[in-house]
Every structure is written in structure tokens, then in C-alpha cells.
Design a protein around this nucleic acid. Structure first.
Lengths: 252, 252
DNA sequence: GCACCCGTATGTCATAGTTAAATGCCGCCC
DNA sequence: GGGCGGCATTTAACTATGACATACGGGTGC
């Protein structure tokens, strides 16, 4: 395996025993589709937290689905300025751009220890030829990612720092909830304030101050690394809108 | 036709006589693909400048390709704050998110008088089943749009206002060049400073001042509504990077 | 136990960016 | 041709945010 600093983890989750299968909200496969996806997946990769396993400017031979853990997509400027584009949670797909195009135009880093299902781009044509439903799902996933980035761009471009901070936390909370990572309205988020800053397009210091203001609102509590949504309506009010429940979605 | 304020324009460009076909850089169709696309296109729509023919929150029954003119995708906040997400030029696809999902999550407005090829979402499954190459192209177009938005988010999040203004103008200029809209390094862009401001995530006034600073750099000239790139290398220097030539791309 | 490192927090000052208001230009109508 | 209205562009005053410097707390390794 030649993918960044990741390595095969010697454990392989068969697709029919995939824990993601049990999740409500994810489209079920037909038997034929499942059989194909089992064949499509050639490996399982474990990546250390902090490792960038997809690099801007490189060619990606694989498509990935997150099985466990969190990752984030990011772009750098020459002088080290970084913009985090989006986070990937279990069931999210990574590397599609690189699989379709000449080279990756963003990088992907593991935020936590990460387990990825590995799909070779060389088999993508097979998938498109034999399973239009899966091809449709891949397009759907790309369109969804675009929607998330559109929303994010609206935040960075037009919301105040407090609004956008509230919105991002609400959004990530909702997605973690969907992934079954939330208990009693609380979660230990794996990202630092610097990650938040780089996602919000703000400086670290200003992010810290904005978080403090948010905490003073009593909508959230963030103590001992545990983030708790105390009053979701109040948080949504600050954000300017709530995050709508997502319709059932595909994954591969 | 029930699409916003647009209307059928009584003129119909057959796909085999499509002017976009003559453009270098766009993938050619096989005879079979062309025959299918002729059938896929059911109408041609002309939209007045300023009309929003796709609205956030509505369901979109169609997919569109821009034949003539410029449009832009945008999202609004409740209080009227607007973020322009991206511009669409000839050969660009619009409405894919709405065609795939329950409803549109952004709106699309014609910047100039616009001519659109109309493709019904109801036939999308047919396309995916019979023409995996076209299905692949649609996914490619979605991924490309995502790339453009990623780049844009990097700009808004991390570049200074001067850098991001330079970058956006360079980017739009390069795309207009690809569309054959540029002559002698000059073009009459159809957008106002307010459009630029809403794209850059800046206020109108700050945009104006930033443009003035850019004009002082002598990299560009903008007089009598004609935008001219005088020194492309200097403009790219201010932007922080040049816009790479695009690989051949599909369109439908 | 101590030192170091990383993440979080705070105060001060500077400046990039916004708001409010003014000016310029163009098109339309009388 | 002149006046008016609307839109685009510009200027001056004010504020949200960035940058710098520093402090504090907790965890890890020696």
C-alpha cells in the first residue's frame, strides 16, 4: 500500500457485516449491489491521526469511505494559510475528485485514528457500466458534498463570526448525531480550536473569543472537552437557522 | 413551461448543430451519445437578465446547460444577505443538485439574457442506465463544480481582500477565455461591483476600494466597462497563484 | 517531581472591513 | 434638451476582527 502514511490494518470488515449497514438513514443495497461492492472494496486502511493520506497535486488511485473516525478536507496557500473545507465522518466518501480527475486539488488529513474502506479508481468504470444505481449514488454523494460546501461558503462569506461559529458547531453536531456519536446531547469533538479557526476562516484568537461569547449565551456548554448542546433552539437562533434533518442517503 | 420567469424562445438549437460543439476543450460525443442527448434535450429556454429561474426550496424538474449568456448560483440569508457561490458560462450545467435531491438548496439567476438547453430529470435514470459514459460525465461535472467552490472557499476564508479579488477576476477571465468571450485580452464582464462584492464576501464599498488598489497595480485596466488583463503575470502574483489551464472537459 | 509542549484564554493595539452618506452617470420621459 | 430617478461608484467615520504578547492549565516523558 502506497497511500501516504497509512497502512493496511490486518483487519478487514466484510461489506455484509459492515457496521454502517445498521444505521438508519443510509440507503440499503440490493443483493446484487452488495455483491458488487464487496468486490469493489479491495482493502481496508488504517491511518494515524494527523496523517495526510491524500495530498493536493498528487494522483489518487483510490476512492475511500470512512468506516471509523474523523477526517477533514483542506487546502493550503503557499505561506501556510490553511482552509479546512469540510469534515468527513463514518459513511462519508473521500477522494472522488482525485479518482475522477487528473490530480487531487485538496488534501485530506485524519483528525482521529481512521479506518477507511479502499476502492480502486480502476474499477469505477465497471461500477458505472453495471450498476447505474450505484453510479447515481456516487453522483448524489458528490452533489451533497457540494451542498455542504455551498452552505459553508455562505457562512464564511456572509455570517458574522458568532453566527458562523454557532452554525458550524450545530452542523457538525447534527452530523455526529446521525453517525450515532452523540449521547445525552453531548459529544467529545476531536478537533481543536485551531481546526475550528481554519474552518471558520478566522484567527485562532478571535475563534477563542467567539467561543467564549457563545458559551456565555448558555446555548452550549464546553467543559472538560465535552461539548453539550444545552438549548438547541437558542443555538439555532444564534446561527440564524437550524440544520434540517437529512433525507435518507446512499453510501458505498 | 413553468420555470420561473423564463419562457420557450421559439428557437431550438439541434444538438448536432450546437455551437458549443466547435469549442476546443470540450469532449466530443460518440454518435450514439449524440443521438441520446438529442433525445434527452426536450426544450430550450430563454431567460431575461435578472430572473431567478431556480429557487432555493423548490423542486427542480430539469437539468440545464447554458448555451448563451451568464448566470450565477447564490444563497440568501433571511435578512437579505447574499452569497454568490459561482458563475455559470456557456457549456456549464445548472440544476444538478435539484435534479438529484428533494429540493434546490441554492438559487440561480440570469446575469445576462440567457439561453438554456433543458433536460428533464425524469430521463436521468435512462441516461444512467444506457450511457455510463454520460453518467460519468455528469459526475465529473459535479466534482468540477465542487473543486471550483473549494477554491472559492479557500479564497474567502484565507486570502486578503486584494488577493481574493485578483484571484476571482483572474479565474473568471480564464473561464471567459475558454468560452471564447475574450478578445485582445479584454472582455466586457456582465457583473456589477455588487455582484463581485457578494461573490467575495465583502461589502460593496470595500470591494470598490480593493478594485481601485488593484487598478493602481497596473496589472489590469477597467475602463468604460471593459476589463483588460494588461499584465497577467502581475495579476497572478497578486492573486498568489495563476489559474491552471483546464484539461478537456465534458458537457452535455 | 520537574520540564516541556500543546491547547486554551486574555489584554492591548492596529487595521481590514462596514456603515452612512455623497457623488457621478446613464437612460427615460416630457 | 433638460430634469428626474435609479443604479453604480466613491468618500468619510466607525467597528469587527486580526495580530502580538503573555498567562494558565493539563498531560506526558524523563
Amino acid at each position: 500500500m502506497i497511500v501516504g502514511q497509512g497502512r493496511s490494518n490486518g483487519q478487514f470488515t466484510p461489506c455484509d457485516l459492515c457496521p454502517l449497514r445498521q444505521r438508519r438513514g443510509l440507503r440499503a443495497f440490493t443483493a446484487d449491489e452488495l455483491a458488487f461492492v464487496k468486490e469493489f472494496k479491495t482493502d481496508e486502511l488504517r491511518v494515524d491521526a494527523g496523517a495526510s493520506f491524500l495530498r493536493e497535486g498528487t494522483r489518487s488511485e483510490y476512492l475511500y469511505t470512512v468506516l471509523h473516525g474523523w477526517a477533514f478536507r483542506y487546502k493550503m496557500l503557499d505561506d501556510g494559510r490553511r482552509q479546512i473545507l469540510n469534515y468527513a465522518l463514518p459513511a462519508d466518501m473521500l477522494g472522488l475528485q482525485g479518482a475522477l480527475m487528473r490530480e487531487m486539488e485538496h488534501s485530506v488529513e485524519a483528525l482521529t485514528p481512521l479506518t477507511l474502506c479502499v476502492f480502486p479508481r480502476a474499477k469505477l468504470w465497471d461500477l458505472y457500466s453495471r450498476f447505474p444505481s450505484l453510479a447515481f449514488d456516487i453522483t448524489w454523494l458528490a452533489a451533497r458534498e457540494e451542498q455542504l460546501i455551498d452552505e459553508h461558503l455562505l457562512s464564511i462569506g456572509r455570517r458574522t463570526s458568532l453566527e458562523r461559529t454557532a452554525f458550524l458547531l450545530l452542523h457538525l453536531f447534527a452530523r455526529a448525531e446521525e453517525s450515532g456519536l452523540v449521547k445525552d446531547n453531548a459529544i467529545q469533538f476531536p478537533f481543536t480550536q485551531q481546526h475550528l479557526a481554519d474552518t471558520l476562516g478566522m484567527s485562532l484568537v478571535h475563534t477563542n473569543k467567539t467561543l467564549k461569547r457563545l458559551m456565555l449565551s448558555r446555548a452550549v456548554r464546553w467543559k472538560d472537552r465535552v461539548f453539550e448542546v444545552v438549548d438547541r433552539a437558542a443555538l439555532a437562533e444564534i446561527a440564524g437557522e437550524d440544520v434540517a434533518p437529512r433525507a435518507p442517503r446512499p453510501f458505498i
